[in-house]
Write a protein that binds this DNA or RNA. Structure first.
Lengths: 187, 187
DNA sequence: GTCTATAGGATGATAGAC
DNA sequence: GTCTATCATCCTATAGAC
């Protein structure tokens, strides 16, 4: 296998593992096992666990922004675009761990290395919504709120709870993705 | 000092430390230093680090629900109540680390001990909004979305960023609390 | 490029004195 | 109730063989 492919493989595995256990809770050994390589090799490829997480974060943000760019390129009026941005965000659920890694980064703002990267990433998304998509401040705030709520429900594995309120809430936040959310919550 | 008071002191310190570094990243030693007691004593009081975090989580949820109950007891029409619930939520920013601890718990849904406690806590809040405050599904979703967005901005320490978009976003999400949010982001 | 072996450091928890 | 001392474990990172 080419080195480039192996790097991508490790990044995918790391996204899942960091998404599951968070930056501190995840071990480079768990990432290595998930990728089918040795632990020292993971460290060797990225230098440090911190650098690995930053690479995972960068990759996740790129995927998110790429998905949004595609929606913007398709054009349409502002309401259509906003809806399709929401749909595109929901599609990212299929990339396992991706939204969770973003969320884990977003609660580590006080970390001297991860904090600045996370803030810049969040602001890139905000700038895209405001400037490229043309959302007003209030529209952007609403949109981001629903995104963070979805992330939270995923982080909580809320769909694994069998209370009726849990189902009602998940259905409300992700009407077309409820089944996927349920599957993720149990895996 | 009475044992009860010392316990509360440790819980306060733990809330700040867990809020700053998360459940896994925080050490019982850091909590002990923040509370001015020895590390083994912290463990002795709560049994395990996990039990300490669960106690912090329970305390945070109780404070949140108490604040909401007070608003509900004051009465008023549904729009007033919703606004005052939002204000009450913002007031919790003054209790340092409280909202951050909730957020840290909310991304640990796959933890066998913390996950269930976090889900039940979130659902208690949701049930209060729906049943006691009388919000519709969509209203509750909107309300929670803005709450999670505020939590995220706090977690990111977004107000520490000096980009103009950062200020715009913080002002939009917490208009009356922007100064407090800025202060917290730098501490 | 990739592995095995392991050093080195941090941390949760226990033992036991006062 | 509270501390000091310390053990045992885990984990990142390095050394070095192939």
């Amino acid at each position: 296998m080419r080195a480039e492919d192996r790097r991508e493989l490790v990044l995918e595995a790391a996204t899942i593992v960091f998404g599951e256990r968070g930056y501190v809770g995840a071990t480079t050994d768990a990432v290595a096992k998930a990728a089918g390589v040795s632990q020292p090799y993971v460290v060797r490829m990225f230098g440090t666990k911190e650098a690995l997480f930053l690479a995972v974060l960068e990759r996740a943000l790129d995927r998110l922004l790429d998905a949004f760019e595609i929606v913007l390129d398709e054009g349409g009026d502002i309401d259509e675009v906003r809806n399709r941005l929401g749909v595109a965000y929901g599609e990212l659920l299929s990339d396992r761990g991706l939204l969770l890694c973003l969320m884990h980064a977003f609660v580590l703002g006080s970390d001297p290395a991860i904090g600045p990267a996370a803030r810049r990433g969040f602001l890139r998304v905000y700038a895209l919504l405001r400037e490229r998509a043309g959302l007003s401040i209030d529209e952007a705030r609403e949109f981001l709120g629903q995104g963070m709520l979805l992330n939270t429900l995923i982080g909580l594995r809320m769909a694994a709870e069998d209370a009726p309120e849990a189902a009602e809430l998940v259905d409300s936040v992700a009407p077309t993705k409820a089944d996927l959310v349920r599957r993720l919550a149990r895996s």
